[in-house]
Design a protein around this nucleic acid. Structure first.
Length: 421
RNA sequence: GGAGACUUGUCCGAGUGGUUGAAGGAGCACGCCUGGAAAGUGUGUAUACGGGAAACUGUAUCAAGGGUUCGAAUCCCUUAGUCUCCGCCA
């Protein structure tokens, strides 16, 4: 959520930023400014009245103490008439505050200046590529066939037991999941991230805090009986740890990592892109979240980028880093880098990580602040995947297939207990 | 799931209708003291939204929401959470 004062003092910049994000309801901006002025007026009016009432009440108290009942009774009547004015103003103020808030949460975050213009994924900017694309024989198999061949993943059973998009991992497939999770977590904690195992369901306030609610409830699984939501990413419980808290400046940066399953209803799925592990409703992911001093968030973003890059390099995968264009970025992000891994058998890039700086957009909703220079201000939040497993698994299987089995990268050997599948 | 007790500021803790945003203590910050530290000592130390150039000042907030009252941290209701006992359970 953008800060009203920022919108008011930077109206032009806000409009420009929204245009870059291809946000169409720009009338909201002036609406918000209008409503906020209205809010202030009403607030002032209300405070004035309340102040008078408070003063009178105090007097009544003093009169009662002196035993001057008659004068006290007179004052009571005066207060009563003042109070009758209070209610309509309060109601108006509430109404204005509500619609101000409703409008405010409709505005997406503003893109950073380095965000490229553009509307579609094709217009994302390739920052750099790394690793080597493997050359596979002509009879190379896509991962769904490899999964069958080595009995690693069973999609059909998942369909039967739960539904499509809920695969069973089996045998070495299950063990590979465990190895990857363990490796990723160790890699992250070695870099100073604190490991968490958070709840896999969150309440409404938390889903709201990270921006899943309102509007995007369709993307989450909702446990209606208890009004809880299955988390679409560990970002939600992790960031919400600090909701409504004021952090001491010397405790920043706060670096957190967690493995969780992620649950996504993914309304718009289609065709070839959803084959095998390319898109599923439940998948495993290790996530990074940082809460940092606002002046440092872009340095931290670069640091997280390098961190994830190192992780991908250690897996010997061919990857590229994209800087997302304004139209392809998420609602909450100010700058996002996507990591894609090359799947040799499918001959396409698969997104495996998304590293974003949200600046104060999330923390303004969650009121995560810190105290520095005597002032209380919002921290910046960032997150990144390190990594989402399914597509990593897809690439590992496809890119490393040989006659002798699937050769795993060295860093996984000890975790997996073998050098190949 | 049942019964009871409880929920006050960063923390501990006082406070059962009237200058209480909240005693007292701890912590923290700054100053004095010290060769340095500890001890001692002085001052300061919540958040949000307003007004004001500023000094300063108004309103709200004692789990959350509602109610009673001229006035509520204090009384009533609802919800959530914590603890204890019982039940159930991996």
């Amino acid at each position: 959520m953008l800060q009203v004062n920022f919108i008011k003092t930077n109206r032009e910049a806000v409009l420009k930023g929204l245009a870059k994000k291809h946000f169409s309801e720009i009338a909201l901006v002036d609406q918000i400014i209008f409503l906020d002025d209205e809010r202030k007026k009403l607030q002032f009016e209300l405070d004035e009245r309340q102040s008078k009432i408070n003063a009178f009440s105090k007097e009544i108290g003093q009169l009662m103490a002196k035993g001057d009942k008659r004068l006290a009774e007179e004052k009571k009547l005066e207060v009563a008439s003042l109070k009758s004015f209070l209610e309509p103003v309060t109601e108006k103020l509430n109404a204005v505050e509500n619609s101000l808030h409703l409008n405010l949460i409709k505005l997406p975050n503003l893109p950073h200046t380095s965000v490229p213009e553009g509307k579609t994924p094709e217009e994302n900017e390739v920052v750099r590529e790394g690793g080597q694309k493997p050359t596979l024989p002509n009879n190379a198999l896509p991962h769904w066939d490899l999964a069958k061949k080595y009995d690693l993943i069973n999609f059909e059973t998942g369909n039967k037991v739960t539904g499509s998009g809920f695969p069973f991992y089996k045998n070495k497939g299950a063990k590979l999941q465990r190895a990857l999770i363990q490796y990723f977590l160790d890699f992250n904690t070695a870099a100073g991230y604190t490991e968490y195992e958070p709840p896999f369901m969150v309440n409404e306030a938390s889903a709201y805090g990270t921006g899943q609610l309102p509007d995007k409830e369709g993307q989450m699984y909702h446990v209606t009986l208890d009004n809880l939501f299955l988390i679409p990413t560990a970002e939600v419980p992790l960031t919400n740890i600090y909701r409504d808290e004021i952090i001491k400046e010397n405790e920043l940066p706060i670096k957190m990592t967690a493995y969780t399953p992620c649950f996504r209803r993914e309304a718009g799925s289609y065709g070839k892109d959803v084959r095998g592990l390319n898109r599923v409703h439940q998948f495993d992911k290790v996530e990074l979240v940082q809460l940092v001093h606002p002046e440092k968030s872009y340095d931290v973003l670069e640091e997280m980028l390098l961190h994830v890059e190192k992780l991908l390099q250690s897996l010997n995968l061919s990857y590229r880093i994209l800087r997302l264009c304004g139209g392809d970025m998420s609602f909450t992000s100010a700058l996002t880098y996507d990591f894609e891994v090359y799947s040799a058998a499918q001959q396409k890039w698969l997104e495996v990580s998304s590293v974003s700086n949200f600046e104060a957009f999330q923390t303004n909703r969650m009121k995560i602040r810190f105290k520095g220079d005597g002032k209380t201000q919002l921290v910046h939040s960032l997150n990144g995947s390190s990594l989402a497993l399914p597509r990593i698994v897809a690439a590992l299987l496809e890119n490393n297939q040989t006659e002798e089995g699937i050769m795993l990268p060295g860093v996984l050997h000890s975790y997996f207990g073998n050098d190949r599948i």
